[in-house]
Every structure is written in structure tokens, then in C-alpha cells.
Amino acid sequence: MSSLPRVDWATAAATAARLTPAGPVPGPAEAAAVVADLRDASVRAQAYVREITRMDPPGSRRTYVIDRGSWIRANLAGFAEVFDGPDQAGSARIREASAGVMAGAVLSVLSPRVLGQFDVFHGLADPAVDRGRLLLVAPNIHAITGKLGLDGADFRLWVCLHEETHRVQYGRAPWLADRLAELVRVAVSAGPAASDHATDAITALMSVVEGHADVVMDQVGPQVIGTLPTIRARFDKRREGRPGLARILGRLLGMEKKLAQYREGAVFCRSVQRLAGVEAFNRVFDSPDLLPSLAEVRDPDSWIRRVRP
């Protein structure tokens, strides 16, 4: 196995800062109102998601409402934990500026599009830090609301439902972030055969967590979001979709088309819940061995047969 890429994180940060376009700048009163409503929507989403998913993990429920620059810095810090680890972070080893430029460029391209993200790698290398944190990119949510002509309060709650589902998933399965980090390391450092196996495993994992979040959004939505059909119809027309961790990994690992297949994960989730119930589906978060393979994501019956007691 070859070594992990030596990324110059300072170059990545400088590249992203240089290339990231400035976001919309609403007036102070309007900006304050959007931030306050996002915080309120995040709190409301917590109760809805926990009721629908039947999962209520312990841990911090704090939400960070941020701008594009803060989102970029959060992701660079998270990937530094994945690639460097606690033993090498901050070391004086030689790093590659080219890898830093690529990472910074990818994040700069995605930064105007991402609405929210559960930062799964936060605290990965430091046991004293709370694992994971929920990020909401206020300027982008505000801009898309206006661009698509959506009801602001409804759209903000809709976004929060998706990201809150991720918080519940990773809270229920503390090992999940470590598993994803391990697969990413293998995908970027191993030979072709091992790398293909890792990318399939990443695709399966991300399809399930993203698909499940979309299902929860739609299950909760009709009860509390009056304009849900409008939001879904207009948002689904956006070609770039809803960039988040899957899109970042796809760009960085060269597997964007694979990780864009959220619909397979949503079909898997709905099928398992219909055939075996919500609690049966929740077993995917019980241990790494119970995660479905990519073949099982596409054949939910086979996963049910494998894990059924």
C-alpha cells in the first residue's frame, strides 16, 4: 500500500480563499432574521427527525450557522484529520502544494452551492472534542430561497430535516465516521483492486445515509411543511443537486458519478422499511458488519435475508 497524499493544507486554504466567489450580502436586519430562523428550524427538526427515525442518540445537538469561508475551513480541518491523523498533524514533513491546490479548488467550486452539512470528521483525531457538528451555510440557503421563489421558513426547515437526520445517524453509530475515514484512506492510497473495493463500499455507505435523509425529509415534510411539493419540484430541477460530503468526496476521489446516486439509497431505505419495518432498517447503524454492500443496496431483499435474526 502506498502512502497517503501529503496535502499542503495552507495552500488549500489560500486557493479556496482566492477562488471562492463572494456570497449575497443581505442587510443586517434580514441577515439576523435568517440566522435566527435557521437556529429555530434546527431545533424543531431535532424532534421531528427523532420521532420518525425512532433514534435518539446522546451527544451535542449544537448547530453552527456559518458563511462560505467557515464551511471551507471546517472541511479542510476535517480532511486534515483524515489524511494526517493525530500523530502527523502539524508535523514538519514535506507536503505537496499541488494536492492543496486541488483540494482548495474543489471546495471553492462547491462552496456557493452547499446548503448544509453534518461535519462527520470533526473531532476524528481528538477524543477530547465532541464528534461531528452540524453546519448550515446561511448565505447559500438565503440565495436559493430567493432564486427558486420558495417560502423561506419552509425551505429552511426542509434543509434542517436532512442535516439533522445525518446528526442522528452518526450519533447512533459513532463508528460510522471512522469507517468512512478508513475507506477514504484506502481509496486514495491502495492499489487498483483495493481502491475499487473501497469506492464501492463508500458508494454503498453514502447512498444509505443520503437516501435515508431524503426519505426522512419526505416522511416528516407533509406534516409540517405546507409548500413541500413546490420545494421538491423546484429543487429537483437543479442539476447540481444538494452538494455535501458525498459531492466533496466524489470530486476529490474521482467518483462523483457513483456518489450522485442517492436514489438507490432512498429506494433501499423505503423498501426495507416497507418489508421489515423502521427498526429493521435502523440495524444498518448497529455495526460495520450490518452495513449493506453496494449489491445489497440494489437488492434490499438480500440484505434483509442476511441480517434478519
Rank of each mutant, 00 (worst) to 15 (best):
A14H: 12
R283F: 01
G265H: 03
D37Q: 08
L249K: 00
Q223E: 11
I304Y: 05
T230H: 06
A153K: 14
G104D: 01
V82Y: 11
P26Q: 08
Q88E: 13
G100I: 00
R306D: 11
E210Y: 02
F285V: 00
P174H: 12
G254F: 03
V120S: 14
G23N: 07
A12K: 00
L110F: 02
D130C: 05
M217T: 11
L176P: 01
T230M: 08
I94P: 00
M102K: 10
M102F: 10
R18A: 15
V159I: 15
V224C: 07
A14Q: 15
A17Y: 07
W9C: 00
M206E: 14
G104V: 00
L259S: 04
L291Y: 09
C160E: 10
F83C: 05
R179F: 05
L134R: 13
R232Q: 10
V109F: 11
S60Y: 08
I304T: 08
A198E: 05
G116D: 12
A128S: 13
L4H: 03
G123R: 04
G191M: 08
D196I: 09
A89V: 15
V106I: 14
G146I: 02
D154I: 01
R6K: 15
L135F: 06
D56G: 05
S108D: 13
V109L: 12
V106M: 03
V137K: 06
P21H: 12
A12H: 01
